[in-house]
Amino acid sequence: MLVHELGVDGVAARLRGDGLGIDLGAAAVCIRSDIDELPSLLSRLYGDFDVAAAPGLFDVTVQLKVERAWWRRLRPQVNLWLDGEREFEPFPRDTPLPLLEWGINYGLASRLSCHLLLHAGVVARGDKALVLPAMPGSGKSTLTAYLSRRGYRLLSDEFGVIRLDDRLVLPLLRPVALKNASIDVLRAADPALTLGPSYPRTRKGTVAHMAPSASDARAVHQPARPAAIVFPQYVPGAGAELRPLEPARTFGRLAVNSFNYDVLGPQGFEALCDVIETTSAHSLVYGDLAAAVSHIDALMAGPAAGAEPT
């Protein structure tokens, strides 16, 4: 059953009851909340995802609960609970969706250590995955989202999930958090885009969430083979320039962009080396999305994109 098939009332009932379980691919999350606007938002943004049965086993359980104390009525706040623990001070009530998404990210990044997790967007063409690791603010989400509207399958905007057993990239699909000018850029690129509301005044400026396509949501259990690694860096006014990276330098940059490389130790070391040996790695400085995409198209079509593992 898909999330939208529950209807908004059905989603609301689950959020207030045992939880709304959602299958993201490499992980499943359970969401509980008493916030009034979340059911319709989740129906819209996660509508094409499979419902995971709750109660059940989840990688992360996130709960957003309105602070009911009478003195909070002037400045309403919500509490974020992760797996039954309240790890943070209350947050303002006015940005529930960014807070929920951030909470899920935090939970997955800190708990999903059965895989190597890179801070990266991932898209694929056929079975060949393009991994886009980057620090926040580098234009990773914009480029990832844009590629997903230009014929690439979206696997994740946030997590490059490398399965340790076979080094394949697993989808960990979520709505893409677009920020500031990217929101209009993507809206212009695809008027049919499903976008959540814009939230001004978040820590990262204005944030709006883009729903993945139905076909991407249906493919969350189809892994892809890492074929190319591109480290994007958005520079206003730049065209697009792709430069090859030395393997050892790629290792350092991937390790820095990993959520759990230091937790995995030798397994992380071997996995990173294997991925680097079977992919091509480049840095991409871009200011022009269309030019960046044509470089990436050429890279993914060429022989440099991923030698078959031997």
Partner: peptide, 19 residues
């Protein structure tokens, strides 16, 4: 543990986990 990547050698220290 060591791996040759390009012209470089990466060595993983099993105790410190430094590379």
């Amino acid at each position: 543990r060591w791996r040759e990547l390009g012209d470089d050698l990466l060595v993983f220290h099993p105790v410190s986990w430094d590379v």
